[in-house]
Nucleic acid binder design. Structure first.
Lengths: 149, 149
DNA sequence: TGCATATAATTCGATATCGAACTAAGTAGT
DNA sequence: ACTACTTAGTTCGATATCGAATTATATGCA
């Protein structure tokens, strides 16, 4: 099935979209009621990338409008999973800090996900993904800088 | 940065999620007010895959709950882009048919997207994507059958 | 045939998403 | 120091998403 370049892009982004949706559903199935992928993602970011970022930095990291991030953070704070303190360097701003309950939440989610990962890793070779990931990172960065100028 | 297999999966799905979001925003920027990616996707599906499917078939094709598809189709019908007729083979069911305005809508969107594609294709080689797409298709199918049993 | 169950679609209610407007605080130019 | 502009975050309103319940039709089995 020969494909025009335009169709190649469409197919690529279409597949990416569906995989994103399926994997999101897979994860959310294991989260406590009231929590969604964005909640998990933020906690994960605080652990893996950096603790104490501003809401705006998080919004940019996840490419969502800052008003969506406000809402996500409110949910995390309500559950005692994070704490928002004033940014000492800028009184307009806040910093987001992980609480012990937040770390436990994230660890629990990952543990609950283990069976899924085990089942899937039998069918998708991780080394295959390792080859693809750098390509995806490159594409993500191109789209990202394209968007921001 | 050596990566555990678990982290490989996480990184992969994370990148996929972000690319999906960025590309979605890119497309939606060119759609008329009130229309979103799902509207475009359905029209595109009617043209590229099959005209006249049932709402349920569409919901499955896009991996969304059927109630979400009801909503999307209502939007398309309100705009005269599709028509929903009774399924002659099953009175519970309906068939979704593309209207001329629907085809025009889709063609316009693709035309409006052309500058973006041109800009991006200068940075992402389509042949690179051609290599990755089969891998993504395989992964999508695995997740899909995993989900449905 | 008649009844139990299954399926297609919709409606309803709760929550998520996001753009626009707003408030508060920082910054730059004079 | 004053004014204009910019930036961080929230609030508000409109729409999207999606699970649960509902309605209408089909199917399977006695």
């Amino acid at each position: 099935m020969p494909d025009s370049p335009l169709e190649t892009y469409f197919t690529f982004f279409n597949e990416v979209g569906i995989i994103g949706q399926l994997s999101r559903t897979l994860l959310e199935r294991h989260l406590p009621k009231g929590y969604l992928l964005p909640h998990f993602s933020v906690l994960n970011h605080l652990i893996r990338v950096r603790d104490g970022p501003t809401p705006l930095a998080l919004a940019r990291a996840f490419q969502v409008p800052k008003t969506s991030m406000t809402h996500t953070l409110a949910g995390l704070e309500r559950g005692g999973l994070i704490e928002m303190r004033q940014n000492p360097e800028d009184k307009r701003s806040k910093c987001v800090w992980l609480m012990p309950a937040g770390r436990a939440f994230r660890d629990d989610a990952i543990a609950a996900l283990a069976p899924d990962v085990a089942r899937i890793s039998g069918q998708i070779d991780a080394s295959r993904l390792t080859e693809i990931v750098p390509e995806l990172v490159a594409i993500r960065k191109i789209l990202d800088t394209d968007r921001n100028g």
